[in-house]
Design a protein around this nucleic acid. Structure first.
Lengths: 85, 85
DNA sequence: TATATATTTAGACAAATGTCTAAATAATAA
DNA sequence: TTATTATTTAGACATTTGTCTAAATATATA
């Protein structure tokens, strides 16, 4: 739970998730959307992976990232209990 | 959005929200639940207030805190769009 | 008024975070 | 093999964060 909230606590990482909602992207394609160095984006992707919010697959020299929405359910559940009663 | 995720990115603050789900509590009552100094708890409450996740009302020498679940809806909405398609 | 209780503010400090550049690793192409 | 492209790792650095103690503020009580 901690890892997920930590991963979501950054505007850049949340935007990455929004990009991946539309389609899978390579690390380079993701980096193109931001005014941030590639190593920094790589670090953001690592945190998203640690939270299991994204998955990655090596395809040749590229690494393709995908959104993993099943993890989002955990937060949804936690937030919904807050609203109960 | 940033303020809300920032507020949620801390175990102590999430536990405070869970406590307030059950009932309103004074700052002192909240502090009793943790092994953390009262000033630190006060600071956590301030961040939760900044995010509008809690409201506070002065009652005599006490300050009573309450959960504000309407803000939770904003995050729920954001998370649900991630899951669409 | 003087004292006690509840809470916040101020300021310090160590740890965590986001960013960068330079270098390393891995795969493709010449 | 050598050069090029894609990505990550390593290490540095400034900023933010969570915590503390001491002091300030506000209310209630003797």
């Amino acid at each position: 739970m901690n890892t997920i909230f930590k991963a979501l606590n950054d505007e850049t990482r949340r935007e990455i998730l929004e990009l991946l909602r539309k389609s899978d992207l390579t690390a380079g394609e993701i980096a193109e959307h931001f005014n941030i160095s590639k190593p920094s984006i790589s670090h953001h992707l690592d945190l998203l992976k640690q939270a299991d919010l994204v998955t990655s697959e090596k395809k040749g020299q590229f690494v393709v990232y995908s959104l993993n929405t099943t993890i989002v359910d955990d937060i949804l559940k936690w937030l919904l209990t807050l609203k109960k009663q």
